[in-house]
Amino acid sequence: MDTLALPASSKREERIARAMIWCVALLVTGTFAWIVGDVFVHGISGLSLSFITEAPERGGRAGGILPIIVSTLSILAVSLVVAIPLGLATAVLLAEFTRRDNWFSTLVARSLDVLAAVPSIVFGLFGNAFFCVWLGMGYSILAGGLTLACMVLPILIRSLEAALRAVPDEYRFAAAALGMSKTRTVLSILLPCAAPGLVVGLILGIGRVLAETAALLFTSGYVDRMPESVMDSGRSLSIHIFDLAMNVPGGEPNAYSSAVVLILMLLIINFTAVWGTDRWVRKISGQSAT
């Protein structure tokens, strides 16, 4: 969008640079198309209504993935129920109730940065030690969901905070000058204003949870039966793909189809996020233009 129309020189060095950069772009695009294409070409044929409404049979080689979808969504639900309130509260705290230069917000920001850089397998270790063993939850959807809640928290907080900060300061001044409390300002004006941005942040978090595998390996476990409660072990879609590909001879076709389902879910989520951002940006800029 904001590409600069820089002079294209015909010097040799310039031409080589241009050619190489275009080559890289083509290479990346080609590889991307290759991966997605490969998964879709192999996976789409196995997709059918019964695939998503039946239980897996013979270790996943046959049958569908219904219990796996249910487990995946349950893990997602658990993690969001925990991460949203915590994340929103921390984001509001950082964006509205602390000054950026004070030691407390620096500390919070630093720990969030560290948290965001911790590898997911380490979250898995922690989740196993804390939720499964120490709190005695065992391999369960609850433990997996809580582990993922910890993992998405920094991403969630960062994007929610950015959404709040994008709300123009004029609203804050207006509210303060009208003698409104900070709390009321946040609840009645800033959160509604930031809502679309908050939704986008949330969607990014959902995407992360759905894509995660390593942190679930030894927190929510492998069991591919229909879970009866959050205390049951449940296999997520990503783990299903991993298991079929690695441990189940002949599991490849269904692994492909499951990958298609997972990618489609993520694509839908991603496009919603992009579409939401666009609309939001347009709304905000429209506001300041009037």
């Binding site: 004029e170 609203y171 207006a174 509210a175 303060a176 000058a177 009208l178 004006i189």
Partner: peptide, 16 residues
């Protein structure tokens, strides 16, 4: 601030 109201340079009605 209720007793001393303020009006700013740029009009700033809430987006409500």
């Amino acid at each position: 601030r209720r007793r001393v109201g303020m009006i700013f340079q740029k009009p700033n009605p809430f987006p409500l």
